[in-house]
């Protein structure tokens, strides 16, 4: 047969078939993983890179409180910078005159506001302390004392679940 007489054979169109089974497998794995990680109360705490929380067997959830964050370099109340931390010392925090510190003033303002709103003499608010695990008790003690002086003797120490 001469080549000129050959008719080009039209390829039959085969509609592409999506491999649903493998996609289903993938989605099932993702779904199971997410279900295990599911939390009714997702963490709303802004975690910074420079903070390393200690691990603990504690099971209690934190409550909505004043959030105090002590990293290696800074001290913050509710994400507002209060003081710098240099070599474990909180700058501007004099143990001899704690009432002059910004930390005391901020907590005192907060305390006055809470008392005004709740009509309680002693609000039962906690301070949620997120502290880097490498800090010494010397640094923590100063902050804790000032907070107690400002009217907040109760704390919740944030830890990572073991």
């Amino acid at each position: 047969m001469a080549l000129g007489h050959m008719r080009p054979r039209a390829k039959k169109f085969v509609p592409p078939k999506l491999m649903i089974t493998s996609m289903m497998d993938m989605f099932t794995i993702i779904l199971i993983f997410l279900l295990f990680q599911f939390s009714e109360k997702p963490e709303t705490i802004h975690m910074m890179e420079e903070i390393e929380l200690p691990t603990s067997s504690a099971k209690m959830d934190h409550t909505e409180t004043i959030q105090l964050v002590l990293t290696q370099n800074s001290l913050q109340i509710n994400d507002d910078l209060v003081a710098q931390v240099k070599k474990g010392n909180v700058v501007g925090l004099d143990p001899q005159n704690p009432k002059a510190s910004v930390l005391y003033q901020r907590l005192q303002e907060q305390f006055a506001q809470t008392v005004k709103n709740s009509d309680e003499k002693q609000p039962k608010e906690h301070i949620l302390l997120l502290c880097d695990k490498r800090h010494s008790f010397k640094t923590i003690n100063k902050i804790v004392k000032i907070a107690a002086l400002a009217g907040y003797p109760n704390f919740q120490f944030a830890v990572l679940k073991e």
Binding site: F27, L34, Q37, S56, M60, H62, A148, P153, N154, Q156
Partner: peptide
């Protein structure tokens, strides 16, 4: 699945923060 996965992604928490209650004298 496509509806559930975005919902779960918004509720997922990759680190679980717990607290220890304490006080000062």
């Amino acid at each position: 699945f496509l509806v559930i996965i975005p919902f779960l992604l918004t509720s997922v928490s990759f680190f679980h923060i717990k607290v220890i209650s304490t006080s000062v004298p």
